[in-house]
Simulated assay, not measured.
Amino acid sequence: MDNITGKVVKYYSDVVTEMRKVTWPSQEELKDATIVVLSVSGILAVFTFSVDWIINAVIKQFLN
């Protein structure tokens, strides 16, 4: 049981050490990245909707 406790303590110690090495983005970088993600998501949503609408229209033509 003591071996498991030691491993858990070492794991969390390693996590804290690695988290201190992390370079966190500034507020401006975070805002810019958020805008990019939302823009790309919107473009992909419009693209997916368009392709779906076109395929749906083509299938309806064949079925009628």
Rank of each mutant, 00 (worst) to 15 (best):
S13T: 13
I35C: 07
Q27M: 01
Q27H: 03
T23A: 05
G6N: 15
F62R: 13
V40S: 10
K10A: 15
G6T: 05
V37I: 12
S50R: 10
Y11R: 01
V16K: 05
G42T: 05
L63C: 01
V51D: 03
L30Y: 01
L38P: 00
A57R: 15
G42Y: 03
Q61K: 06
A57F: 09
M1R: 10
N3M: 15
S41H: 08
Y12R: 12
A45I: 03
F49N: 00
M1W: 09
E29C: 01
M19C: 11
F47T: 03
K31L: 02
E28L: 13
I59K: 11
M1D: 13
E28H: 04
N3T: 13
G6M: 09
T48S: 14
V36R: 15
E28I: 08
G6A: 04
D52W: 13
S41G: 15
I43T: 12
R20K: 03
E29N: 09
V15D: 06
V36Y: 05
L63Y: 01
S26I: 08
E29G: 02
T23L: 05
Y12N: 13
N64R: 10
I59P: 04
V51W: 08
T48C: 13
F62N: 09
M19Y: 03
K7Q: 14
I35Y: 12
S26F: 00
D2G: 07
R20P: 00
S13R: 00
T5G: 06
L30I: 10
S26C: 09
Q27C: 07
A45G: 07
A57W: 11
I55A: 06
K10Q: 14
I35H: 13
K10V: 10
A45V: 13
K60S: 12
I35Q: 09
V15M: 07
P25V: 03
L63F: 10
L38G: 02
V8I: 15
V15P: 04
L30E: 02
I59L: 15
N64I: 02
V51A: 14
K10H: 04
K31V: 00
D2Q: 13
N3Y: 08
I59V: 15
K10E: 15
E28W: 01
L44F: 06
I4E: 14
S41I: 02
R20V: 01
F62T: 10
L38I: 09
S13N: 14
V46R: 14
K10L: 06
I43P: 03
K60L: 14
D14L: 11
I4W: 11
I35W: 05
W53M: 01
S39T: 13
